[in-house]
Design a protein around this nucleic acid. Sequence first.
DNA 1: TTTTGACTTGACAAATTTTGACAAAAATAC
DNA 2: GTATTTTTGTCAAAATTTGTCAAGTCAAAA
Lengths: 102, 102
Amino acid sequence: MQEKKIGELLRTLRESHKLLLREVSAGIAIDQALLSKIERGERLPTKEQVTKLSKYYHAEKNELIIAWLSDKLVNELADEDLAQEILKVTEKKIIHINKSKL
Amino acid sequence: MQEKKIGELLRTLRESHKLLLREVSAGIAIDQALLSKIERGERLPTKEQVTKLSKYYHAEKNELIIAWLSDKLVNELADEDLAQEILKVTEKKIIHINKSKL
DNA sequence: TTTTGACTTGACAAATTTTGACAAAAATAC
DNA sequence: GTATTTTTGTCAAAATTTGTCAAGTCAAAA
């Protein structure tokens, strides 16, 4: 699985479609300055925006969601030197939760 | 590494010290109702509260931080069926960031 | 059974963070 | 040069998180 940032993916998608910020932002009703910030990683999109963009570009939604949410987690773990361990424990907890959901 | 929730750890710590909510909340200047909610997992503490509590109980700060932040991540991943994959990608991104920090 | 003490609950207020909008600057293309 | 596209900065609205308080439950003591 890819480890690109959501903004990079979105910019690549837009460029491969040869579209302008203006066009995409009009297409999904989002401020163009905001879209610019999202593509450059200055802001993270909302989940709804990711969904709209995946549809707009006919892109794999899951791939974008993964990139987006992992970016969010990376932010939360920023300057935590325990990051690796925290992720391990998180994984265990998730697995545990999923087991009890059967 | 442990996979207990931060609230469980805090309640265990308080009980092993034979302390009342009232006493701990006075000791670290936090509303007792809030501490009650934290111990029962209804609320997550702030990082500062985790720090204060670890000092107050003379507990291993890292252990509490890990439990606390992993709880936060679990919340963010709640009802994401891509959770596992997201964690993997997050880990890769963190590793990548750490490498470039040398 | 009444009272007391420990804890919990719910509703709300305060504070913080996130998000969106807009104008204006900067960069790029023509 | 002008026109178009993108970026930047700021600010208010919206949403989320956090804190406070009063009233509640419950168990055990008196």
